[in-house]
Amino acid sequence: MIVFVRTIILYIFVTLAMRLMGKRQIGELQPFELVVALMLSELATLPMQDTAIPLIHGIIPILTLMSLEILISFLTLKIEFLRKVFCGTPDILIKHGKVSEEELRRQRFNLDDLIEELRMSGYLDISDIEYAILETSGKLSIIPKAEKSPVTKEDLNLRPQATKLPVSIILDGVLNKKNLAITGHDLNWLMENLRSKGINDIKDVFIAMIDSKGNLFIQRRDRDEEENKK
């Protein structure tokens, strides 16, 4: 029972700590962030299993690590020197289609790994690469040579319509008045559109949203469709 309660407390605590540390903790990790994530998991599991360890012995290190992480990310944001110390700098592994032997050796990054990363990004030949940059998070960014890069709409002189942010108006039969106001329309406009699709009640709508092209997308609830068929 004690283990059960301790697990709940520590779970809530670690989740809050991770949440306070920011979104990057669950995405791309910098070296110092990875250290904190590894330590946090270990710190939380020890007092969780061993009831002889006071809970405070798990909570204090978690709080300290969380503060240090926030402090370091704040300082690295402000001071470039610290950013270099804690995050490191990106390294160019391929420059103008030529692999830098020295950088590979320095980063202990072998050729097989490099070729594998290139293949995974859809490039088979090293000569197709203008730059391959090993980022501080350990990921490899690949910039192909101009002639090998994919064709863009700009290359074809196409002028696409600007993409708008999709806004949901009704979700699972519940109207979001705030979002409706954001779209610049009112309830009468919405009801008119719903009636044109044969829907008289908002509760019968599963999804209604303004899509990225500015059109209204409506999907009726399955239950109502089945009832209509009957």
């Binding site: 360890i53 809970l55 012995h57």
Partner: peptide, 8 residues
């Protein structure tokens, strides 16, 4: 003390 030091 139980809340502060190791129970052993």
């Amino acid at each position: 003390w139980s809340a502060l030091i190791h129970h052993d």
